[in-house]
Amino acid sequence: MDLTSLLTQKKAAILDGWFDRIVASYPPDSAKMLKKNDRFSNPLGSTLFREIDRLFDELLTGGVHVDRVTLSLDSLMRIKAVQDFAPSEAIGFVFSLKEAIRSNLTAELQEDGLAKDLVVYESRIDELALISFDVYMKCREAIFQLKTDELKRQTHKLLERANRIGGTAQK
């Protein structure tokens, strides 16, 4: 069996492993609760699960389609960018997919000589990590922008009046 078929066959187990590794970066008491897959009562856990599922499917299709993976990565990084993670920790979840794959295919990788194919998949995962970094930075920059925009909105009329009095701005 080729590696793509194997990964497809073992998708559920690999995704579980990946998900567990991601939620392990949260305190244990919370990690348990993040496993409930309900979009509204557990937005964090359900977003993680939905998007890693999409990313995994994308890897299986044979390449990394930048626009599509960016959408999924945006949903994930938007969360990580405001939580208590250093940038390396925020992006680190991508690499834990490598561990999830290896630990689920230990025997197959040795016996069937699939290691060479695995390198191809791992390169795609590296590519995902690089895109994650771009997305992460975009989210961080968005936070800085939020602060500026909010400040302007908070005093909208006063600024408008002040400018008008100074004759520097047109309404």
């Binding site: 509204f40 939580q83 936070i143």
Partner: peptide
Amino acid sequence: TDEYMEMRMRGGFPRANA
């Protein structure tokens, strides 16, 4: 307040998600 932005975005996430 703006210095609290990251925490506000976390706290508002369930609302935004809906």
